[in-house]
């Protein structure tokens, strides 16, 4: 697959204010983004996500390393590279609040050298697609946070760039608008064949719309993999079993021998058993224990791991353990 963005050995160091200390915001980061891909850039606060995004946008000059956008080195030919990129940066600071929705769209298109005539049809199309029709003559400061965010994405779309970078696109949005923004992002990739890079803390957004994630921690890439691979890698065979009776002492003894990590909570009429199996066949051993006293099984629920838990495990360095176990 053709890469539209190539990031190679990127480094950026900041000097702390009023101090001689340096902060390594980004240390030797390399990754590629394929055309038409949605890439999630994840990491805890201060991991280096925004610094990486700003270097790709040409807003920050890296100390060393190289960024190629559509084959153009953005250090050597910054303005040429910028033709292929547009971005919605974090917060609601991407628009002119005293201009209307339409005026903002037309102004930013003009700022990229496009004429009003060139973009008139696209403006209408985007107003419709982004549910902003009827609001086009409204001042931006009178719009809701969600509307402003949708407009900021529409402005980035109007740039006709190949790549759109979004820094925390769902931050501060309510559930409904967050969902709407997610659907819009999916439609952008589906209908317009644009490449999207999203930096977000919202794991649902990443799990829902990204094909691949790059996880950064302390300025370094700790994972670069497809979302489904990560989900598989951290898949666990953990079960919560609701029993219609309490286990007798013999059963409890056997459980302790066969499943030393289990958690058993008993109530007056029923009990709950939390168990993690190393292999799927282990479930038969469990049934043997239950059969000893014909303990009725009321429910078996498999616990799943979500992307947020995976992220936490990766950041804490548990990926290596998972890889070792799976092999």
């Amino acid at each position: 697959m053709e890469s539209i963005i190539e990031v190679q050995n990127l480094r950026k160091t900041y000097r702390k204010r009023r101090s001689k200390e340096y902060v390594h915001a980004v240390s030797d980061i390399s990754f590629k983004v394929n055309r038409g891909e949605i890439l999630g850039l994840l990491g805890p606060n201060g991991a280096g996500k925004t610094t990486t995004i700003k270097m790709i946008c040409g807003l920050l000059i890296p100390d060393s390393g190289m960024i190629r956008i559509n084959g153009i080195d953005n250090k050597e030919k910054r303005l040429k590279a910028l033709r292929h990129i547009s971005a919605v940066l974090e917060g609601n600071r991407n628009l002119y609040w005293r201009l209307t929705v339409r005026e903002n769209l037309e102004y930013f298109a003009g700022n990229r050298g496009m004429s009003r005539k060139d973009v008139i049809d696209q403006v209408e199309d985007l107003l419709l697609k982004f549910n902003l029709k009827g609001k086009e003559n409204e001042l931006v400061n009178r719009l809701s946070r969600g509307m402003q965010q949708k407009l900021a994405i529409a402005v980035a779309m109007l740039a006709e760039s190949d790549v759109i970078l979004l820094d925390e696109p769902t931050l501060g949005l309510d559930v409904e608008t967050g969902y709407e923004v997610r659907e819009i992002l999916k439609a952008i990739v589906r209908d317009y064949n644009r490449t999207i890079i999203i930096s977000s803390h919202d794991m649902d957004v990443i799990q829902d719309i990204c094909e691949r994630t790059v996880i950064i921690n302390q300025g370094k890439i700790v994972t670069d993999d497809r979302v489904e691979n990560l989900l598989k890698l951290f898949e666990i065979r953990a079960y919560t079993i609701t029993l219609g009776d309490i286990l007798n002492s013999q059963q409890q003894q056997l459980l302790l021998q066969k499943f030393p990590q289990h958690d058993y909570q008993q109530d007056t009429y029923q009990s709950i058993l939390n168990i993690e199996l190393a292999k799927s066949e282990g479930i038969y051993d469990l049934f043997d224990v239950l059969k000893l006293n014909n303990t009725p099984v009321e429910a078996i629920d498999r616990r799943t791991i979500n992307f947020e838990q995976i992220f936490m495990k990766i950041v804490k360095g548990e990926k290596q353990d998972a890889l070792a176990q799976s092999s």
Partner: peptide
């Protein structure tokens, strides 16, 4: 202050032209 300076800086026309 508005936060739009970065958007201007990202224009392929270049900020000096703007």
């Amino acid at each position: 202050m508005k936060g739009t300076l970065e958007q201007l800086s990202m224009s392929p026309m270049g900020m000096w032209r703007i």
